[in-house]
């Protein structure tokens, strides 16, 4: 059952990612990205990373989706006409993509990954979400604070950049 669900959601993620590549309407591209990100969240649940899955759904489906849709609606030139994107550099992109994908698959298929036996006794009894909470406030305290400051700077900076707008062609 879990294997079937894994391949189902992996197929969904790959197909919706390829859909973004082929559609020309930016709105459909954003919706396909949402489908892809939610499929990836389902894969996280199947991989026993529930907290990351919930964070992915909250942040991507709740935050980034709304922000990207606002961006699309604010940058469409004519009201009522869908924002259609042009393609360029097709040859170079296909060459780069196929080369990179072939390289990655070749490297992955020549290596075997073996599970690492853990020796930590304290974290064995914790639930996964509890283990993340404990690690956030002990081992990862400094990165946690730094990432909070980074998020604050980014939010204030985004507001300042998008706030005082002036137009070159009024």
């Amino acid at each position: 059952m879990i294997t079937f669900l894994f391949y189902l959601f992996a197929l969904l993620a790959g197909a919706s990612a390829l859909t973004i590549l082929f559609v020309r309407n930016v709105f459909y591209g954003a919706l396909s990205l949402m489908a892809c990100l939610l499929s990836i969240a389902a894969l996280y649940v199947l991989a026993y990373a529930e907290f990351v899955a919930v964070t992915q759904i909250l942040i991507y489906a709740g935050g980034i989706a709304i922000v990207i849709l606002f961006g699309i609606m604010l940058t469409s030139r004519v009201r009522g006409v869908p924002l259609v994107v042009q393609h360029n550099n097709l040859f170079g992109a296909v060459v780069a993509g196929v080369a990179l994908f072939g390289l990655l698959v070749t490297v992955f298929s020549h290596h075997t990954v073996t599970p690492v036996p853990t020796s930590t006794e304290g974290t064995q009894t914790l639930q996964p979400a509890q283990a993340i909470g404990v690690a956030t406030l002990t081992a990862y305290l400094l990165p946690f604070e730094v990432i909070g400051i980074l998020l604050l700077i980014a939010a204030v900076g985004a507001m300042v950049i998008a706030g005082s707008l002036k137009s070159k062609q009024p």
Binding site: G14, A17, N89, A93, V94, G97, F101, L104, F108, S109
Partner: peptide, 27 residues
């Protein structure tokens, strides 16, 4: 693990091709 890695490689490659091909900044 290997199938997850292959899916990650596919998604990364697709993202790279989208970044190169599309002309709109939002894409």
């Amino acid at each position: 693990v290997h199938h997850l890695l292959y899916l990650g490689a596919l998604l990364f490659t697709t993202g790279l091709m989208i970044t190169i091909i599309k002309r709109n900044a939002i894409m």
